[in-house]
Amino acid sequence: MKDYIIVRLEDPKSQDAKSLMDLLSDTLQSITGDSGKNSFDVTDVTVPRSLFVIARNQQGEPVGCGAIRPIDTNTAELKRMYAKSKSNGVGTAILSYLEEQSWSLGYSQIWLETRLVNQKAVSFYENKGYTRISNYGKYLNREECVCFGKYLRQET
């Protein structure tokens, strides 16, 4: 049985957000050799058409986070996706919420980058309907990076 998870908009500068992003950075450092801190600025998710979310369990404890920021008019970039537990639906809940919010903000697609060596992340995104796209932006010509995209569709 999956835990009850609530995902909601929160302040990316809060202590819970900082703690979750520090855990993510430590995890990324151990998997990839890079914390990912240089690829994220908290002010990027305080601009229009961006957002930061925290997932909480039934007890209200923070168990994951994620964010989107604009790349262009039609494309949001997924950033700082993290789930403390990899098996109780936290990542799926965060991603679903961010996809819904992206659609409501007028985006038609989401792009993201992860590292090829991070096979759990690669598999997670592939299982959620993301397909490999050409590396973009700062990830161009970086063989250790893999980029993904997904077109959003309105639920009917």
Rank of each mutant, 00 (worst) to 15 (best):
T114Q: 02
Y82Q: 10
S25F: 06
L152P: 10
S19K: 12
G137M: 03
T43I: 11
G137P: 01
T75L: 00
A93D: 07
L95E: 00
V45D: 07
S96H: 13
E100R: 11
Q101K: 14
S19I: 07
V117A: 10
M21R: 12
E100N: 14
D34F: 10
Q29G: 02
Y82T: 04
Y151N: 08
A121H: 00
C145I: 01
V7H: 06
S35R: 03
Q119K: 14
Q101C: 11
E144Q: 13
N74C: 12
W111I: 09
L152H: 04
K37E: 13
I54M: 03
D16K: 10
R142T: 04
Y151R: 06
S85R: 13
L20P: 05
C145D: 09
C145V: 05
L78M: 14
L140D: 05
S87W: 00
Q29A: 12
N141E: 15
M21T: 10
V7N: 03
G149Y: 00
R80Y: 01
I54K: 07
S96N: 14
S123M: 11
Y139Q: 03
G91A: 04
I6V: 12
F52M: 11
Q119S: 15
V45H: 02
L116K: 13
I94R: 04
G137R: 10
N38T: 13
D34N: 13
P12Y: 03
R69K: 14
S50H: 00
Q101E: 15
K2G: 06
Q59A: 15
S102E: 06
L78K: 06
C145H: 09
S85C: 07
P70A: 04
C145K: 05
I54T: 05
I54E: 04
P70Q: 03
T46L: 12
E77A: 11
R8F: 02
G106Q: 10
G89Q: 00
N88V: 11
G129C: 00
G106D: 04
K84E: 15
S39A: 11
S96Q: 13
R153L: 01
M81T: 01
W103N: 03
N88H: 08
K120Q: 14
E113P: 05
S96M: 09
